[in-house]
Design a binder for these strands. Sequence first.
DNA 1: TTGTACGCGTTATCAA
DNA 2: TTGATAACGCGTACAA
Lengths: 343, 343
Amino acid sequence: MRKITKEVTIYDLAKALNVSPTTVSRALNDHHSIGKDTTQAVKKLAKKLGYRPNSVASSLRKNKSNTIGVIMPLISRPFVASVISGIEEEANQAGFNVIISQTYDSYEKEVANAQTLYSNRVAGLIVSLAMETQTYDHFYPFMQKDIPLVSIDRISDELETDRIVIDNFAAAYKATEHLIKMGCRRIAHFGGAQHRNVYYERQQGYIEALKHYGMEVEDELMVHNKLSLEEGRESMAQLLSLPQPPDAVFSANDSAAVGAIQVAKQRGLHIPQDIAFVGFNDDPISSIIDPALTTITHPAFEMGKIAAQQVLKNRENTDIVQSQTIVLKTELLIRASSLRKTT
Amino acid sequence: MRKITKEVTIYDLAKALNVSPTTVSRALNDHHSIGKDTTQAVKKLAKKLGYRPNSVASSLRKNKSNTIGVIMPLISRPFVASVISGIEEEANQAGFNVIISQTYDSYEKEVANAQTLYSNRVAGLIVSLAMETQTYDHFYPFMQKDIPLVSIDRISDELETDRIVIDNFAAAYKATEHLIKMGCRRIAHFGGAQHRNVYYERQQGYIEALKHYGMEVEDELMVHNKLSLEEGRESMAQLLSLPQPPDAVFSANDSAAVGAIQVAKQRGLHIPQDIAFVGFNDDPISSIIDPALTTITHPAFEMGKIAAQQVLKNRENTDIVQSQTIVLKTELLIRASSLRKTT
DNA sequence: TTGTACGCGTTATCAA
DNA sequence: TTGATAACGCGTACAA
């Protein structure tokens, strides 16, 4: 039979040491006003008796927990997993925990998650919006209570928060320009939902590069799908059945690009001679596919760290501060899938 | 200037409706003893006033939160990400949240995470042990307080908890047997740290299969590394420089197998004719590498769901129940990397 | 079916 | 440098 031991509280410590609970509380929190010996004695006894701080009680009293809430579309995406690791690292260093929740790109789930995290009185919230989301009222309670709110990657103009993003437009422009310089003349694009900033901006970067180099922007070469491996395959098949198929694809993510490469290979096309590919994200699969996929690198871990830093920084800040937008650098990582010639 | 609105509490609702806070509390929790009209009126007003339950206060009062703690080695591993999704799905359905923490396979991190989760009074804990961990005292407080504790995948004999695992021995046996039946005669093995059950069992399955088919178990063919892609490469290079290199590799995970395949291809070896490969986990990269990697499928999502179910089931259970071990099925997924002949 | 009164463990406030 | 006291918001024994 297991023994259910009663919890040790600061009262128990106080009694045993003949001091007040206040003193114990302060000692445990390294309050400056407590004598060194007292502090040491308290900590020593706490250790001896196996005292475990009850952060629930502390959170209630302070009306704020030591937990940062995180809402992400899907943690199994390598990009997202890295972002979370970055958040965790920074949060843990500051003694904060992280509650992670997934939306599966559903608006409903996002609303539910936001409410739950609010109920848990998270000290801050880091969000990457669900694909579906187009209204933002569910974040209003956080803003009303001045709970730091930071958007990552997938943001919205209608949601005024600190933002950690990359320059999707520039990255896409660079990717497309690279294909052009490699001699590609009919460049297709796989894009995602256009109401989500990242996909819109990537498509705009693509379009702008084409225009700048005097190439036509053709609707039949701009495909919108869910950017899964499967849909990448389907879209590729569709493009290859055009009277004039493309000689390159710039995909808004790696999964779809990899699917497309698989189809192209099956059809006996030579990559990159017959058709070149550029993806986006630098997921692990991008370096495994053969030929290796040229892609855009994302500083995901860094983005997570900065997001957590912003939350921690804004934590005590009741002032009216302008929301910040931090834009991180991306790089074009050239690999075999697009390297038609060496410059 | 943002307004900091005061929180709406059950007291506010009570006053407005001229009932007691008790009634409000019960109504919100659908307590049977409260009249239908009262309940409805309370809920309606709660919605109108934007009442948000304070789960921190509730947790303190009940001395138990509605949060399940999760400790995993590294969430960016596809297997782990799936497990977490399974946990989340089940937990959310029951109105529970999930706090996720990573150990990065470090013992110290694991201890710290356990303490933090304990301080947060999680309602249960789901753990997949860090590679380093060899002592288990940090889980003792949970057992003492009868907080449901469930181990997943990476377990220990010394840690008596419910367990959700796969039959690593059988899976490894099947994988090795498959290679034998494909005509391989010098089968190497990539294994991980042997004090961690999963890697030990996989190696034992490998050894047992060799023995059963009258093949010799050679030390030089059993390589232990960290099973990363990079170390897979190194180990492969090393094996290929043997006087008698292997004609097959059974790797305890996919990453190392993929690295090995890359090296074999670079050396001009034909796969699977010259050398065959089997991995473990069915990670996304296993189907992207060319030739596609034969591997063992893991019901990761399912394992997560069951783990959460166990936690929820044991939640109110102060009885002395024997800890359960649930073993899930794996499958050998045969792909081109090992298919030397069709049977 | 509803209400009264208390306590969960901690910290903020004010006083000493 | 320390202490007494109240309060955070909720749930529950007990009473009505």
